[in-house]
């Protein structure tokens, strides 16, 4: 190792030690571990709620816990269809409405717990389907 490399290494190490003390490296390491743990928690928090229900449509409220836009592109299932695609901005609440084409048939399916609908949801550009039992 020549003198230039030695001097550069010493400068880099001096910077790291000074900045680690100044910026409190241990605290930020703790914070970053905490953040990863809390992200793991937030992934298990889907919050879909029924807001209103009439003979012709059901409105759902979806809470977006992420700093990303959520899109509800389509809903397929027996006797239901999505009124229009819905966009839920980051960290906000949004609603989407399902139209019911045949209420009595829908109701009997829902009562026997056989009304399964499939939602096509986009999380930014990450698209996936979810099956929900109404």
């Amino acid at each position: 190792m020549d003198s230039v490399k030695l001097a550069a290494s010493l400068l880099a190490v001096a910077f790291l030690i000074a900045a680690a003390v100044e910026l409190n490296l241990r605290e930020s390491l703790g914070e970053s571990v905490q953040q990863i743990l809390s992200l793991r928690q937030s992934l298990k928090n889907p919050s879909l709620k029924t807001v209103s229900e009439t003979a012709s449509n059901i409105t759902f409220s979806l809470q977006n816990p992420y700093n990303l836009t959520i899109y509800v592109y389509s809903v397929t299932g027996p006797y239901v269809s999505l009124e229009r695609p819905s966009v839920i901005p980051p960290l906000q609440n949004g609603t989407f409405t399902l139209k019911i084409t045949n209420f009595s048939a829908f109701e009997s399916l829902a009562k026997s717990r056989e009304e399964n609908i499939t939602l096509l949801i986009g999380l930014a550009q990450f698209n996936f389907t979810v099956e929900v039992n109404l």
Binding site: F15, L16, L23, S28, E31, S32, I36, L39, Y66, N67
Partner: peptide, 19 residues
């Protein structure tokens, strides 16, 4: 990650700044 800045990447960036 999920629209949030990972703080761990700041810690790694700090070490890479030494380099």
């Amino acid at each position: 990650f999920m629209g949030d800045r990972l703080l761990l990447s700041d810690v790694i960036t700090f070490l890479l700044t030494g380099f």
